[in-house]
Write a protein that binds this DNA or RNA. Structure first.
Lengths: 108, 108
DNA sequence: CGTATTGCTACGATAATTGTAGCAACGGAG
DNA sequence: CTCCGTTGCTACAATTATCGTAGCAATACG
Protein backbone atom coordinates (compact mmCIF):
# COMPACT_ATOMS: atom_id res chain seq x y z
CA UNK A 1 0.00 0.00 0.00
CA UNK A 2 1.23 3.47 -0.79
CA UNK A 3 2.17 6.03 1.76
CA UNK A 4 -0.79 7.69 3.37
CA UNK A 5 0.79 10.92 4.51
CA UNK A 6 -0.58 12.68 1.47
CA UNK A 7 -4.12 11.98 2.57
CA UNK A 8 -3.99 14.96 4.88
CA UNK A 9 -4.84 17.17 1.97
CA UNK A 10 -8.38 15.96 1.72
CA UNK A 11 -8.85 16.03 5.48
CA UNK A 12 -8.96 12.47 6.56
CA UNK A 13 -12.39 11.05 6.27
CA UNK A 14 -14.04 11.40 9.62
CA UNK A 15 -11.76 13.60 11.59
CA UNK A 16 -13.73 15.54 14.10
CA UNK A 17 -13.84 18.77 12.21
CA UNK A 18 -17.04 19.57 14.01
CA UNK A 19 -19.07 17.65 11.51
CA UNK A 20 -22.49 16.97 12.96
CA UNK A 21 -22.43 13.30 12.04
CA UNK A 22 -19.37 12.77 14.22
CA UNK A 23 -20.93 14.54 17.17
CA UNK A 24 -24.06 12.47 16.69
CA UNK A 25 -22.18 9.18 16.45
CA UNK A 26 -20.27 10.13 19.57
CA UNK A 27 -23.42 10.95 21.51
CA UNK A 28 -25.24 7.83 20.38
CA UNK A 29 -22.11 5.79 21.04
CA UNK A 30 -22.32 6.40 24.76
CA UNK A 31 -23.76 3.74 26.95
CA UNK A 32 -27.57 3.68 27.19
CA UNK A 33 -28.07 6.48 24.70
CA UNK A 34 -29.51 4.29 21.97
CA UNK A 35 -31.36 2.22 24.52
CA UNK A 36 -33.05 5.25 26.09
CA UNK A 37 -34.27 6.51 22.75
CA UNK A 38 -35.45 3.04 21.95
CA UNK A 39 -37.43 2.65 25.16
CA UNK A 40 -39.07 6.04 24.72
CA UNK A 41 -40.09 5.28 21.15
CA UNK A 42 -43.75 4.64 21.98
CA UNK A 43 -44.64 6.76 24.97
CA UNK A 44 -43.09 8.96 27.65
CA UNK A 45 -41.80 7.17 30.72
CA UNK A 46 -41.00 8.35 34.20
CA UNK A 47 -37.39 8.16 35.26
CA UNK A 48 -37.93 5.07 37.37
CA UNK A 49 -39.94 3.22 34.76
CA UNK A 50 -37.29 4.10 32.22
CA UNK A 51 -34.67 2.75 34.58
CA UNK A 52 -36.56 -0.49 34.87
CA UNK A 53 -36.91 -0.68 31.11
CA UNK A 54 -33.17 -0.11 30.77
CA UNK A 55 -32.29 -3.21 32.75
CA UNK A 56 -31.95 -1.34 36.06
CA UNK A 57 -29.10 0.76 34.79
CA UNK A 58 -27.43 3.02 37.31
CA UNK A 59 -29.38 6.25 37.83
CA UNK A 60 -26.14 8.19 37.72
CA UNK A 61 -25.38 7.48 34.10
CA UNK A 62 -29.04 7.46 33.18
CA UNK A 63 -29.40 11.02 34.41
CA UNK A 64 -26.24 11.99 32.58
CA UNK A 65 -27.56 10.56 29.31
CA UNK A 66 -30.96 12.14 29.79
CA UNK A 67 -29.34 15.51 30.34
CA UNK A 68 -27.20 15.10 27.24
CA UNK A 69 -30.15 13.95 25.17
CA UNK A 70 -32.17 16.88 26.43
CA UNK A 71 -29.44 19.34 25.58
CA UNK A 72 -29.26 17.77 22.16
CA UNK A 73 -32.97 18.37 21.77
CA UNK A 74 -34.00 14.76 21.43
CA UNK A 75 -35.67 14.28 24.80
CA UNK A 76 -37.76 16.53 26.97
CA UNK A 77 -39.17 16.42 30.46
CA UNK A 78 -42.92 16.85 30.37
CA UNK A 79 -44.50 19.36 32.74
CA UNK A 80 -46.55 16.58 34.26
CA UNK A 81 -43.39 14.53 34.78
CA UNK A 82 -41.98 11.80 32.64
CA UNK A 83 -39.45 11.81 29.85
CA UNK A 84 -40.57 11.79 26.27
CA UNK A 85 -39.15 12.28 22.81
CA UNK A 86 -39.31 15.66 21.15
CA UNK A 87 -40.36 15.93 17.52
CA UNK A 88 -36.67 15.84 16.63
CA UNK A 89 -36.13 12.85 18.89
CA UNK A 90 -38.98 10.98 17.29
CA UNK A 91 -37.47 11.74 13.94
CA UNK A 92 -34.09 10.42 15.06
CA UNK A 93 -35.72 7.33 16.47
CA UNK A 94 -37.37 6.64 13.14
CA UNK A 95 -34.04 6.69 11.34
CA UNK A 96 -32.70 3.71 13.19
CA UNK A 97 -35.98 1.89 13.68
CA UNK A 98 -35.10 -0.47 10.81
CA UNK A 99 -32.42 -1.80 13.15
CA UNK A 100 -35.10 -3.88 14.80
CA UNK A 101 -35.82 -5.93 11.73
CA UNK A 102 -32.13 -6.16 10.97
CA UNK A 103 -31.45 -7.46 14.47
CA UNK A 104 -34.17 -10.07 14.12
CA UNK A 105 -32.57 -11.43 10.99
CA UNK A 106 -29.14 -11.18 12.57
CA UNK A 107 -29.93 -13.32 15.62
CA UNK A 108 -26.22 -13.88 16.29
CA UNK B 1 -46.57 0.36 40.79
CA UNK B 2 -45.40 -2.81 42.42
CA UNK B 3 -42.00 -4.03 43.33
CA UNK B 4 -40.04 -5.74 40.66
CA UNK B 5 -37.82 -8.73 41.03
CA UNK B 6 -34.56 -7.08 41.63
CA UNK B 7 -31.68 -9.39 41.16
CA UNK B 8 -30.70 -12.19 38.97
CA UNK B 9 -27.19 -12.96 38.13
CA UNK B 10 -26.34 -9.77 36.39
CA UNK B 11 -23.92 -9.71 33.53
CA UNK B 12 -21.32 -7.04 33.52
CA UNK B 13 -22.45 -5.68 30.25
CA UNK B 14 -26.14 -4.93 29.87
CA UNK B 15 -28.74 -6.52 27.70
CA UNK B 16 -28.78 -10.13 28.70
CA UNK B 17 -32.42 -10.17 27.71
CA UNK B 18 -31.74 -12.33 24.71
CA UNK B 19 -33.62 -9.99 22.43
CA UNK B 20 -31.43 -9.41 19.40
CA UNK B 21 -32.23 -5.71 19.26
CA UNK B 22 -30.89 -5.25 22.77
CA UNK B 23 -27.68 -7.08 22.00
CA UNK B 24 -27.31 -4.99 18.88
CA UNK B 25 -27.96 -1.71 20.68
CA UNK B 26 -25.45 -2.75 23.31
CA UNK B 27 -22.78 -3.58 20.77
CA UNK B 28 -23.34 -0.41 18.77
CA UNK B 29 -23.48 1.56 22.03
CA UNK B 30 -19.85 0.86 22.77
CA UNK B 31 -17.31 3.52 22.04
CA UNK B 32 -16.10 3.66 18.43
CA UNK B 33 -18.42 0.90 17.22
CA UNK B 34 -20.65 3.17 15.18
CA UNK B 35 -17.67 5.22 14.09
CA UNK B 36 -15.77 2.21 12.81
CA UNK B 37 -18.70 1.04 10.75
CA UNK B 38 -19.12 4.55 9.46
CA UNK B 39 -15.51 4.91 8.40
CA UNK B 40 -15.54 1.58 6.62
CA UNK B 41 -18.71 2.40 4.71
CA UNK B 42 -16.93 3.13 1.44
CA UNK B 43 -13.84 0.99 1.28
CA UNK B 44 -11.67 -1.28 3.42
CA UNK B 45 -9.03 0.42 5.53
CA UNK B 46 -5.88 -0.84 7.18
CA UNK B 47 -5.78 -0.73 10.95
CA UNK B 48 -3.57 2.33 11.02
CA UNK B 49 -5.54 4.27 8.48
CA UNK B 50 -8.70 3.35 10.36
CA UNK B 51 -7.10 4.61 13.54
CA UNK B 52 -6.27 7.89 11.88
CA UNK B 53 -9.80 8.15 10.56
CA UNK B 54 -11.13 7.49 14.05
CA UNK B 55 -9.41 10.53 15.48
CA UNK B 56 -6.33 8.60 16.66
CA UNK B 57 -8.35 6.46 19.01
CA UNK B 58 -6.38 4.10 21.20
CA UNK B 59 -5.38 0.91 19.37
CA UNK B 60 -6.37 -1.13 22.40
CA UNK B 61 -10.04 -0.34 22.23
CA UNK B 62 -9.99 -0.21 18.45
CA UNK B 63 -8.74 -3.78 18.32
CA UNK B 64 -11.34 -4.81 20.86
CA UNK B 65 -14.15 -3.27 18.81
CA UNK B 66 -12.83 -4.77 15.60
CA UNK B 67 -12.75 -8.20 17.21
CA UNK B 68 -16.30 -7.79 18.48
CA UNK B 69 -17.53 -6.53 15.14
CA UNK B 70 -15.80 -9.42 13.42
CA UNK B 71 -17.38 -11.94 15.79
CA UNK B 72 -20.72 -10.29 15.12
CA UNK B 73 -20.14 -10.82 11.43
CA UNK B 74 -20.14 -7.17 10.42
CA UNK B 75 -16.44 -6.72 9.71
CA UNK B 76 -13.79 -8.95 8.20
CA UNK B 77 -10.06 -8.86 7.74
CA UNK B 78 -9.18 -9.21 4.09
CA UNK B 79 -6.51 -11.70 3.13
CA UNK B 80 -4.51 -8.87 1.61
CA UNK B 81 -4.76 -6.96 4.87
CA UNK B 82 -7.18 -4.22 5.74
CA UNK B 83 -10.53 -4.25 7.43
CA UNK B 84 -13.72 -4.14 5.44
CA UNK B 85 -17.43 -4.62 5.88
CA UNK B 86 -19.03 -7.96 5.23
CA UNK B 87 -22.27 -8.15 3.27
CA UNK B 88 -24.08 -8.12 6.59
CA UNK B 89 -22.01 -5.20 7.78
CA UNK B 90 -22.80 -3.23 4.66
CA UNK B 91 -26.44 -3.96 5.23
CA UNK B 92 -26.22 -2.72 8.81
CA UNK B 93 -24.39 0.38 7.68
CA UNK B 94 -27.17 1.14 5.24
CA UNK B 95 -29.78 1.08 7.98
CA UNK B 96 -28.27 4.00 9.82
CA UNK B 97 -26.94 5.86 6.83
CA UNK B 98 -29.93 8.25 6.98
CA UNK B 99 -28.34 9.48 10.19
CA UNK B 100 -26.03 11.59 8.07
CA UNK B 101 -28.79 13.69 6.61
CA UNK B 102 -30.46 13.90 10.00
CA UNK B 103 -27.24 15.12 11.59
CA UNK B 104 -26.83 17.76 8.92
CA UNK B 105 -30.26 19.17 9.70
CA UNK B 106 -29.61 18.81 13.40
CA UNK B 107 -26.46 20.93 13.51
CA UNK B 108 -26.76 21.25 17.30
C1' DC C 1 -49.26 14.43 60.15
C1' DG C 2 -47.60 9.91 57.15
C1' DT C 3 -46.84 7.82 52.84
C1' DA C 4 -45.94 7.57 48.27
C1' DT C 5 -44.57 9.38 44.23
C1' DT C 6 -41.53 12.52 41.14
C1' DG C 7 -36.56 13.99 39.29
C1' DC C 8 -32.08 13.96 40.82
C1' DT C 9 -27.39 13.49 43.38
C1' DA C 10 -23.21 11.56 46.43
C1' DC C 11 -19.83 8.45 46.67
C1' DG C 12 -16.88 4.32 46.89
C1' DA C 13 -16.12 0.32 43.97
C1' DT C 14 -15.48 -1.60 39.51
C1' DA C 15 -15.06 -1.79 34.58
C1' DA C 16 -13.90 0.56 30.25
C1' DT C 17 -10.90 3.58 27.70
C1' DT C 18 -6.76 6.19 26.91
C1' DG C 19 -1.89 6.98 25.65
C1' DT C 20 2.54 5.29 24.89
C1' DA C 21 5.49 1.94 23.69
C1' DG C 22 6.60 -2.02 21.53
C1' DC C 23 6.15 -6.99 19.54
C1' DA C 24 6.42 -10.76 15.49
C1' DA C 25 5.51 -11.41 10.72
C1' DC C 26 5.61 -10.12 5.98
C1' DG C 27 7.50 -7.81 1.88
C1' DG C 28 10.33 -4.74 -1.10
C1' DA C 29 14.67 -2.54 -2.01
C1' DG C 30 19.51 -2.41 -1.83
C1' DC D 1 21.52 -11.72 2.97
C1' DT D 2 20.38 -7.12 5.73
C1' DC D 3 17.81 -2.97 6.32
C1' DC D 4 13.60 -0.57 6.35
C1' DG D 5 8.82 0.11 6.48
C1' DT D 6 4.54 -1.81 6.67
C1' DT D 7 0.92 -4.96 8.51
C1' DG D 8 -2.17 -6.57 12.64
C1' DC D 9 -1.86 -6.71 17.35
C1' DT D 10 -0.57 -6.49 22.53
C1' DA D 11 1.26 -4.76 27.48
C1' DC D 12 0.91 -1.69 30.82
C1' DA D 13 -0.16 2.13 33.90
C1' DA D 14 -3.06 6.22 34.11
C1' DT D 15 -7.31 8.26 33.43
C1' DT D 16 -12.55 8.16 32.65
C1' DA D 17 -16.82 6.22 32.60
C1' DT D 18 -20.06 3.41 34.66
C1' DC D 19 -22.04 0.74 38.44
C1' DG D 20 -24.64 -0.01 42.76
C1' DT D 21 -26.46 1.63 46.85
C1' DA D 22 -28.25 5.01 49.40
C1' DG D 23 -30.45 9.05 50.00
C1' DC D 24 -32.00 14.09 49.09
C1' DA D 25 -35.83 18.00 48.21
C1' DA D 26 -40.16 18.77 46.20
C1' DT D 27 -44.82 17.48 45.29
C1' DA D 28 -49.29 15.28 45.97
C1' DC D 29 -52.94 12.74 48.40
C1' DG D 30 -55.46 11.06 52.51
Amino acid sequence: MAKQAASKTRGVRGSRTGRPIMALLDLLGRRWSLRILWELRDEPLTSRVLRTACDEASPTVLQARLTELREAGFVELGDGGGYGLTALGRELCETFMPLYRFAERWKR
